[in-house]
Structures are given as C-alpha cells and as structure tokens.
Design a protein around this nucleic acid. Sequence first.
DNA 1: CTGAAAGCGCTTACAG
DNA 2: CTGAAAGCGCTTACAG
Lengths: 325, 325
Amino acid sequence: MRVTIADVARQAGVSKTTVSRVINTKGEVDGGTAARVRAVIARLGYVPSSGAVGLARGSSRTVGMLVPSLTWPWMGEVLQGVVDTVEAAGYGLLLFTCNRGAESVQRFTTQVSARAFDGLLVVEPENTLDTIVGLHHQGLPVVLIDDRGAHPEDFPSVVTTNFEGGASAARHLLADGRTKPLVITGPAHFGCVRERLAGFRHVLPTDRVVVGDFTELSGRLAVEKLLHARVEFDAVFAHNDISAAGALRALRAAGRSVPDDIAVVGFDNIPMARHTEPPLTTVRQPAREMGETAARMLLEHLGGAAAPDEPVVLPTELVVRQSAP
Amino acid sequence: MRVTIADVARQAGVSKTTVSRVINTKGEVDGGTAARVRAVIARLGYVPSSGAVGLARGSSRTVGMLVPSLTWPWMGEVLQGVVDTVEAAGYGLLLFTCNRGAESVQRFTTQVSARAFDGLLVVEPENTLDTIVGLHHQGLPVVLIDDRGAHPEDFPSVVTTNFEGGASAARHLLADGRTKPLVITGPAHFGCVRERLAGFRHVLPTDRVVVGDFTELSGRLAVEKLLHARVEFDAVFAHNDISAAGALRALRAAGRSVPDDIAVVGFDNIPMARHTEPPLTTVRQPAREMGETAARMLLEHLGGAAAPDEPVVLPTELVVRQSAP
DNA sequence: CTGAAAGCGCTTACAG
DNA sequence: CTGAAAGCGCTTACAG
C-alpha cells in the first residue's frame, strides 16, 4: 500500500542503505546513483515514515509544549512564537494542557516517558512544577517560559523584566507630573507581581497598594474602594490589562476623567488594550519573543549546546496610548 | 538505559508477547501472571515507546491540526475545545500553522505523508483548501472547522448558523424599535458574510450596507462615511466584534450616544466584547464547541464510524449587553 | 493460557 | 562508493 524505502531501493536497483544515505546526504554516494535514487523517490512520492525514523534514530524530531490554558489573551502570541521557530527547524509540536489537574499531569507524564517528544517547553506550571523539575533531572531537556516569576534557580527559563517594567510605568507617570499613584497588583505570591511592585515603588514610592487577582472585577473594586474611602490619587498602575480595564470602568462610572483626572497604565499589552476607552497605555510583555527564544534555546540544547543555567531575560516596552499620554 | 518490554518480560519471567497482552488487556492471560507482570511494570516504571507502538500498529494515536494563525481572538477557544477532546481520548495533538505560504504547506504535506498523525483537523484553509481536499481523497481522515463559510460540498465539516445569527441580530434590533440599520460586513467573498447579511435582511431589509474587512479601521470608516453623507441610521450590525469596536469609537467621536441614538451589535463574542464602551451586544459564535465537535467527529471516524457527509451545524447565540439592550 | 518468530520501516556500524 | 545484517521496541498471526 504505502511506499517504503524498500520499494525505492528495488526500483532504483540499489540497497536500502544507499537510499537512506541519499535521503540523509550522509556518507559518499556516486553522483549518478544518487540522481537515480532521487528520481525514483520523486516518481513514487516516497516520504520516510516519521515513526520508523524516530524508532531507528531514537529521537522523534518533535518537541512537546505544556500550557495551563489556551484561552488566555497572550497565550496565542507565545504559541505562535514557538510554532514558528519549531517548524522552521523541521520539528513538530505536540501540544498538551493540564487543566484537568492530576489526571492531565498523569497522562502527560506518560507521554513524556513514552518518548513522544525529545524536549519540552512549559508555560506556568503552578502545581506541575515539581513534576517538571523531576523530568528535567531525569534528563529531559526542558525550557520554562516563566511569565509569573516562579522558576527554580539554575533552571533553563525565559523571563521578562518585571522590575524594569514596573519602573518604566512609574517613570512615565512621574514625567507627566503624577505623584499619588494607586497600584493594583496581581496575586501577592507571584514573583512577577512582587517585582513589578518593587520596580514601580523604586521610582515612585507609594502606600496606595491594593492586592488584586488579575480579574476585571478586582480592578474595579480596587478603584471603588479608594474612591469610597476618599483617598486621593492621580494615577493607577494595574499589574495586568484586564484589571486596568476594570479600573477604567470604575473611574468612568464615578465620573472621573481619564487621563485628565487620573492616568491609567496596565501591563501585558493584550489585543484588548487598544480598544478600551480611552485606549490603554501599558507595559508590553514580549510574549511572542519569549516563545521564540524558549523554542530556540530548546532546539539548540537538543542540538548539543549546553543549557543556559540562568534565565534569559527579554525586555518589556512601554506602549503609550491615551489613558496615560 | 531505558526500560523496554524485554526488560519487563525478563524480570517477570514471561515472554514479550505476554507482557504486550497484559498491557493491552488483549487475549486471555492467567490472573496470577498478569498480576506479576503488572508488578514488574510498576516497579520498573515501564512505559511503552509511543514510536515503536505506532510503527508496529501502523497508527500513531495522534491527530494533526492545521491553523492559519494562533493569535486570532477566538482561535484559543477552538484550540482549547480540540485539545480537551483529543486528550480525553488519549490522543496527542500535533500543531501546524501555514503562515509562511507555500513553504509551510509543503512542509506540512510532508508531515502528513510521513504518517506523523492519523487524522487532521483544519481551520480556515484559504489557499490550502485544494491540498486538504487532495489529502482527504487520498484517504486521510479530515474534518474542517469552517468559520468563514468556505467548505466544499460533501466534506466533513463543522459550521455555525450564520444566517440565523444575522437574523437574531435583526430581530433583537427590531424588537427595540430600530428600523434603519447599517450593516458593516466582512469581505464579500466569504460565505459566512453573505449568510449573515442575508439572515439580517430577511428580518430587517436595508440598503445601508458597507463592505468592510473585519478590521477596526473598516468599522470606523464605515460609520464616518455614513455620518458624513448624512445618512440616517439608528443601529449598526457589524459582522465581527473588532469592526463593531471601530463603529463604537467613531460614533463616540461624533458625539452619538450608544445605545440611545444608535444601537450596536457585533458578531463572535470575543473576550474584548465585554470591555468595550459600552459593552457590546453580539452574536456568539460557538468556537469552543466547534473545536470539540470537530475533534469528536474525527476521533469517531478514526474509530471506524462513517464520516458525516454534510456539515454539522452548531447554533449561534445572542449575547445582550449595553450597546443594544 | 503462553511463546517463538516475523514484521512494522527505518538507520547504522561493519565489511568490502 | 556500496550492501548485508543487526537493531530500534513494539504487535500479531501462528502454533502449541
């Protein structure tokens, strides 16, 4: 039924070994022989079975990627960066999620052991981190795309400049004459949250800090709370764009003008940021570049390069729109 | 190094055949023997090599998915639906994009022929449709997730009720007393665009139609154009949420109140829709369900079921928010 | 209930 | 420059 290397060998009048050499341009092959083999390959439309090649070579030319969710706004960017890089290198990408908790992790671990892929890219492990570290110690090449500041030490990972991102937001607000900012954070146990806050305060010290949870509601409630308590503030720095959108809504509902009365800066630069009212100034997180870089690191490692033992850091970038000109 | 079926067989004092039977619960095996084998498997942490199993069985228990882009707002939902379904069935998902044109398609086709996966899920082929149809004729199980109304006849596909979606938008506006609607369409050659327009006009005939291209800019320009021409209208139906957001912006810039002066309805229900000002009433496209359904159809087909030769239709749903109460 | 052997489709020393 | 043979780690008739 399907065309195999044996068919090609027979029709070209050579051995399977020679066909294999032609395909992989490995070892010396007579020019004429090679041409004849290539002609047969073309005529038969022969394509090597990836499964058989993988079995014989002991590697699958596939990398795995584990993500917590596919519906988060910046996940598409990360994924696109990974897929582009991986495909360009001729590798396949096997995608896994772990949204069913223990069961998913179990199934996933099985796939790993089954050698379905040669290396692994991971975003946001949360409860999976121990498993991942374990796999890494067992010899599986792993690179972590860490957007929440939770990577273990000495672990290959890609991060962004959360401290500097927070600082850049503060500098921008300060340059506009804002001196009484409110910070709406994400969950306090996230490393990225602590860093963004520290960076911001380093430039613009403030005690007006409300701990949020990255939801729109938390952004809205934080603003309402301060308004109700009659705390004065002339700017808001929210730790992600979603909660910044909530803050915008609460300010509008309260009749405060943005940016005239209060300037607002978010974090992430998700697609929505340009469609809020007014469009949101925000600290861009380089999601796509993080995906690309992590994939490149993993591929280089598979190619034999040493894994970097300290995180690769990609810069944030302030995107200025009307909410904080 | 790695634990193989031979190791298990040796330590359990049985043949590889028996180990295989225990693993696959296939054929009769003595209870005691089975227990002994299972104990060894557990002790050694043995996991079958997916590559070898695939080679021996002639199938990879993996499905491929081809998408044009991973950064579109509703793609995450589709993907999540697919991944959940595929993982639950114990299959892996191999992800491909075709954003580098011919080169990508070529590489992708090679993967197909390499039997890296057993079946294929496709979103929005555009220039790839011929290739896909060809692969399907060659015997590759394929299911198309068609969000733009472009599936060939007699092709397994999942679509949504574009006509009814347009009609439901019209009924909602009509019930609110709107009688002079503007329709901002997507590209005119899309089947879904024609259907949404036909459905809308079936309920609420109108000649105020501006052809857009699904971008925010096109939504903004359409409104500005009508405003400038002093055409009267009391509602806008945009064929996607992005261009609806553009319409909202243009209306606000012109000092028109939404929904008092003009009601606005979008299409898709992307995450952004709840964050526009005012939040957007829209026709929800069941992206996740489309992904789930397509994956289920493909898996059933791989399991031996006949492929449905006419499209499976999933209903849209009107989501009412403030822009058109 | 169990096992020896062939086969899945490749790659890779080894020998010439 | 080329090929015969072993091997990758499984499954599956076939025979008992």
